[in-house]
Write a protein that binds this DNA or RNA. Structure first.
Lengths: 199, 199
DNA sequence: TAGAATAGAGAACAAGTGGAGAACAAATCA
DNA sequence: TGATTTGTTCTCCACTTGTTCTCTATTCTA
């Protein structure tokens, strides 16, 4: 189910503003925020976000509009290993890892284990676990999981220039790689790191 | 179970005021505080908070309204900051952090935040969180929290020789320090590391 | 350019919510 | 014990809020 332009816009506004609301906002309050004059108009948009799974369905209740929380209670899934130059090695049955609040982004997150030393100068070592927030945009300088040519996945620092994307390794023996924007798909942004010293 | 607006509001007011009441407040007293005129109205709200697990159920007794203690789910305590050359900066009220199994030792563990760059070559950076298993022995090569002369705490790699203990920093600009065994008390061994990239 | 999709206004409706107050029973106190 | 306090249950009522309509304007698309 695709969202229309306005629906995306409203969802973005919700994300940015909803946390500031102490109680969940009602339709009327939201109309005010969005500059709408009719609840009915807003209702259509919210309904679309509900079926898209982004907003909690209110089953006849009057408890305001709430975004669905990526439930962090149980933990976030450990999906597999990522090694520069290969696809992500997914494991069959993702297990859940309990990760402290602190290492989570706002959106849905998952964990990968890093294979290789390409980010060693950033303090990311072979065998470390990284917490990734799944999203398709990144800011310059972010460390991202990038899918190159729909084939290989890699963890690198990203630099986005007009017409080209540069992926920087953090290892003196490796150099930065340059791609065309359409070759690179961002799959997530690094939010946290976990390392175990128990063998 | 989701709370309604009023229920949230009442719970917030309870949190803010309940501690000031020496005896737990009765329904009537609370009605005064909340500006309600009817016990029955308040009772509905309190009942909702009880089923939500936020207020202690009163089984026919007349003890007033008490909040349930924030049930210490699970997690290990975050105790404060450790900077080479100083005592551990303990915080007043240790909060609990949910840490994945993987980073825990067998014994009781706690979390410290690292201040300074003395272990930078081991991939432990300023601001990182370390999971420490509290114990007084360590094996050679372990990274430990060591208390020196009962004064300053530090995170270093340990080497125990007959008659002396060497603490190795992992920073080219720092050299190893040698102590007599009686000067050094091991307080715990590094088991895990956490780093947040969200600022 | 015609038709479809998208967006909004506004009216009307039904159900949820919040509160008042009465009545009652059990616990507590004098 | 009797009187009082306190928690509980009930009904009733006003208001809010989510929902569903219809109608119109604008934008996109074949």
């Amino acid at each position: 189910m695709k969202l229309t332009r306005r629906q995306q816009e409203i969802y973005r506004i919700l994300q940015q503003n909803l946390e500031h609301y102490q109680p969940a906002p009602t339709f009327d309050e939201l109309c005010g925020l969005l500059g709408l004059k009719s609840r009915g108009s807003l209702h259509k948009h919210i309904q679309a976000l509900v079926v898209a799974g982004l907003v909690e369905p209110m089953q006849g209740l009057k408890r305001g509009i709430r975004l669905v929380e990526p439930s962090t209670d149980e933990g976030i899934p450990y999906l597999g290993r990522i090694a520069a130059g290969r696809p992500i090695e997914a494991i069959n049955q993702p297990e859940l890892m309990q990760v402290p609040e602190l290492l989570l982004g706002k959106g849905p997150c998952y964990v990968l284990q890093v294979s290789g030393d390409s980010m060693i100068d950033e303090g990311i070592y072979d065998g470390d676990y990284v917490v990734i927030e799944g999203q398709e945009q990144a800011r310059d300088g972010d460390i991202v999981v990038a899918l190159i040519d729909n084939e290989e996945a890699t963890l690198k620092r990203i630099e986005q220039l007009p017409g080209e994307v540069i992926l920087h390794a953090a290892n003196p023996s490796m150099s930065a790689l340059t791609f065309k924007p359409e070759q690179v798909r961002i799959q997530g942004v690094l939010r946290g790191l976990l390392r175990s010293y128990t063998k």
